[in-house]
Amino acid sequence: MNSNNELSELIFWTKNRNKITTSIGKWIGGDDVICHGHSMMKELLGNISYMQMLVLNITGRLIEENVAKWLEGNFIGVSYPDARIWCNTIGSLAGSMKTSVVAATVSGVLAADSRGYGGSQTSLYGMEFIQSALKEHKSGKSVDDIIKNSKHKNGKPVITGYARPVSRNDERLAPHQNMTQKLGFAQGEHMKLAFQINEYLDEKYGLAMNVAGYSCAFLSDQKFSPEEVYRIKSMMVASGVTACYIDYFNRPAHSFLPQYCEDVKYDGVSLREIP
């Protein structure tokens, strides 16, 4: 690489070599830390909640106390200390292997980065759905049209946040509704539509909104983007995982659901010899 012309093609990388340019913040050794324009030592520490700090680091916005309290309640709502839940099973297994608490907790958190459960990645899809549904609704589409155009499986719509059979109670929904009311939030336009969708799905398919659908509508009304909520909720199952880890950490090896060989069913090819 010797001509100036060739070097100019590398400018994108050379300008970033040995240099960080950012607007997120900076540690000023011995003095302060700047976080999205706020002073950590003079303004934030001691004055805001950890949830407000977490959201500030992720979004660059210092949210109101009541929004942070709502999010904290929402986090509590997935901190189940029950080792049957997939991410928590991993915490227990890690405890049984005497893994470090951080590895155990992070492993459980990673497991909950799932398209099926966990509240983080699922929020991405739930938020995308309700935000896109509201846009469509405002442009004149009926709830019937919105649902008809959504993904279907076995003749039923598959929408994150609205897959709960009506017969099964979601124990988190009523406390979330109470929390929203207690913290003084009015019903926003996403939430209004979410309840219309809920009513439609209940009537037509026997499906109902769960806490994911409710949370996504609420957080959309609070002007969060789907990506922001995925990021904010990335660690939300952590404490339940840690609880399950600790439960098995102090027990002897193989304490957690020990299995007979035959508890794992083999359904592969017959036993064979190498030709």
Binding site: H254, P258, Q259, Y260, C261, E262, D263, V264, K265, Y266, D267, G268, V269, L271
Partner: peptide, 18 residues
């Protein structure tokens, strides 16, 4: 039961965990 087509363990006749 969990199922797998990859791994088969023939249990010991004296210890079903082994």
């Amino acid at each position: 039961k969990t199922t797998t087509a990859i791994y088969y363990e023939k249990p010991s006749s004296s210890n079903p965990f082994m």
